[in-house]
Design a protein around this nucleic acid. Sequence first.
DNA 1: GCATGATCATGC
DNA 2: GCATGATCATGC
Length: 463
Amino acid sequence: MIKSYKNKNEVQIKAESILNKSLRDVISQEAINTIEKKVGEYGTKRKGYLGNIIERYFFEINPGNTSEPDFQEAGIELKTTPLKTHLARKFTSKERLVFSMINYETIVSETWLLSSFLKKNKTLLLMFYQWIENKHILDYRFIFIHFLNLLQDIPDEDVFQIQKDWEYIVAKIKRGEAHLLSEGDTYYLGACTKAANNRVVRDQTFNSKSAKPRAFSFKQQYINYIIQTKLLGNKSSTDSIFKKKRRIETIEDGIKDKFAQYIEKSDSEILKMLNSTLENKSKGYKRLIINRILGVESRNIEELEKANITLKVITLEHTGTLRESISFPAFDYRDLVTQTWYDGEEETMADFHLQLEAKKFLFVIFQKQKGTSNIVLKKVMFWNFPMKDIDEAERVWQKTINCINQGNYDIFPKMSESDVAHVRPHGKNSKDKILTPHNTLEMKRCFWLNAKYIKKAIELELK
DNA sequence: GCATGATCATGC
DNA sequence: GCATGATCATGC
């Protein structure tokens, strides 16, 4: 009893019949019994299971694992995806949106418009359900149904960026660097790790090294942007760098353009060029200059948020050295010791690992001037943590956990012990403490990327 | 000059 | 009140 849907309209009518309902409300008792039995066997945690039962018992299709869209005739790919609810009708995506696996061998001969990715995913049917912890898989309520054509329904510059993201990933595979792929390499479309079983590795054609299996995905932040603009129709609460219609260009080019005329200028020259003044050199002085350059008022910048880019102001000494390391949010000792670096599941990836792998940084680099209090804007660059150093980061992370487990709160990995990362305090002051697994109180700390390490990354770019 | 410990400032 | 980003202070 496999149904076929001839066109979008037929799919839409069916899909919308589950709006504000759960699966239990709309499928047969027989199907419910079958699913209940399976849930009994496997538990509800099995990934992708909800997507399977929606296909099989709600739409009554059986697409299997093919290169064709799930609704083959209608040319539509189905994605069921969880939403987290916050106060006042605010929703965010619980996860990234994961597409098909990247085939390292065949993708190198593809081009964007004819890619297997587009062939399968050009038109998406997004079915959002309200995620609540421990809720039965049959009882999730579907709250939004949305069709999204990746070439037509999102801004042209986003389509362009997604194409560039796809091409970047393919170029890296062609260079024989599939094992160095990272989600932070790209902006909206990422190559996220995806393993059916632990530590599955896949061969790549251009290198003897095995690479982690990866799938294309939309970053969580980009899905949030889709939710905000397409589902809620909200005027976003964020500020935008590109207020007028912008050129079709990448995020990198767009943002670098904004800074271009101010490079090698001093702070006072920049302010003069902007017809702007700033009273005193407060702690946020440089950040305020940057905001003026970008033409934004707030720290929440749409273009940075939707690509998971963190802006970091970096100040070089007049000699060119970098004093300050880069901090991450303070960690929770009790939570940290329960984390796994990577076990094949994105969802359970350690926070620090995720921060290194998924994040992009925008470094805005100033340099102090000898003998004056002036600073000069030297360089604007995008950076993400290179995967060649990920094992070293893991080592530091593991040692930190070992220290906590052993109750050694005064011998965390120091800067001198690693070329990459270390642990240091990060609280209001030394009295700013949180609970440890031993139920004692310890000063808040966090992981840092070594100043020297960042300096090296900047130098590579300055050359 | 640098590593380490510590704290400040800001915005939500 | 707190998280986060940014920077200071000290001693070797």
